[in-house]
Design a protein around this nucleic acid. Sequence first.
DNA 1: GCCTGAACGGACCGGTTCGTTCATAGGAGC
DNA 2: GCTCCTATGAACGAACCGGTCCGTTCAGGC
Lengths: 216, 216
Amino acid sequence: MTAESAPRERVRDAERTRAEIIEVATHEFADQGYAGARVDEIAAKTRTTKRMIYYYFGGKEGLYLAVLEGAYQRIRALEQELDVEHLEPVEALRRLAEMTFDHHESHPDFVRLVAIENIHYAKHLSSSASREVLAAPALDVLTRIMERGRAAGLFRDDLDALDVHMIISAFCVFRGANRYTFKAIFDRDLFDPRLRDHLRAMIGDLVVSHVTAGRP
Amino acid sequence: MTAESAPRERVRDAERTRAEIIEVATHEFADQGYAGARVDEIAAKTRTTKRMIYYYFGGKEGLYLAVLEGAYQRIRALEQELDVEHLEPVEALRRLAEMTFDHHESHPDFVRLVAIENIHYAKHLSSSASREVLAAPALDVLTRIMERGRAAGLFRDDLDALDVHMIISAFCVFRGANRYTFKAIFDRDLFDPRLRDHLRAMIGDLVVSHVTAGRP
DNA sequence: GCCTGAACGGACCGGTTCGTTCATAGGAGC
DNA sequence: GCTCCTATGAACGAACCGGTCCGTTCAGGC
């Protein structure tokens, strides 16, 4: 037997219970908001009880914080493994925008949690320990791309990487976060599959035309 | 005495009571979200009582709906009085973007209410009678500008007015709705006065360079 | 097998919150 | 001045909800 035995089915499994609570809570908080989510309801949807939520997370707020940190950790991991060094700057930039587009499309809970956290003035995120680690991965790749683009004379040289990041983010977040009021008012579903490629190309075009504006 | 007597201080003034409740509730819902806002708290901040909220609005949900409709009505009125017909297309487009930028900056409650309504899947807005009236004013001006731009050969002819509206909206809404998480992560306050002109010019540049891409 | 501590469940508690009830003050018309 | 109806206020109630208490079960070391 090795030191690490095969994880056979355990009746009592702290790690599993904890993970299940987080998973259910992520969806519940994203769906209902912080005040709207019910601890009883979250507990009912797990295979454990409310008592366990307090046992592991201390309370509703502790659970919410764990949910939020988990969601951010997942996108951060994704950003770090993006490799566009082998692409030319223009194509790399487009690829980065499309990756953000794809991620936000396939992680609606993340987009909603961010919106909810902003409703609360980001007070939880601000006091979170993992906060300071989040900026770098998101910006490093973009900074490298822009350096290469400038060096090759393809990009404008008066642009800030954070500005460009904001443009991409704004577009992709808006599509997810405001799709319902947008649909209600303009009767256009931004998540309609027939619209997907069009919008995906659009954020690419938009950001590329912006950083190359006034260049040959 | 004219038919309409001067509105002297009345002890009992239905219109005034109603308006005051709406005003307080707008700020409270925008600040706390629907589930987070407290009816008792709203009542306490007016010069009337909770009883009046139920008397005039039926309940919490009715009040929220009235708040939402009021907020949309105000921006709609603003859009309708925008006059850019005398400007050339490129300048008109920039002006429209800047007007949206300015409005969203000076009406943070509106931006937050929209975010909150999206958390609720726009279910209140969808069932609101005023919903269908909202699309036209927002789009009419833009459609006219783009027609003129295309006719003059200045703009691309493969663009949808709603797409362009989305770009402007995304940028301006993101700035207001996501400022707190953005600040927490990147340590940049999107509402910093020193950044205002830069960002205001940016959305103008962005949208102009997009609609004129590939044109002389 | 027994003992210890981690993992767990269900009942319960106290404060909060939406909504209601009862009572009444004030103005408009006669 | 009387009456009727709108506007208003204070207090109440019932459900809800976050959080806690007490007791139980399971796994593993010895």
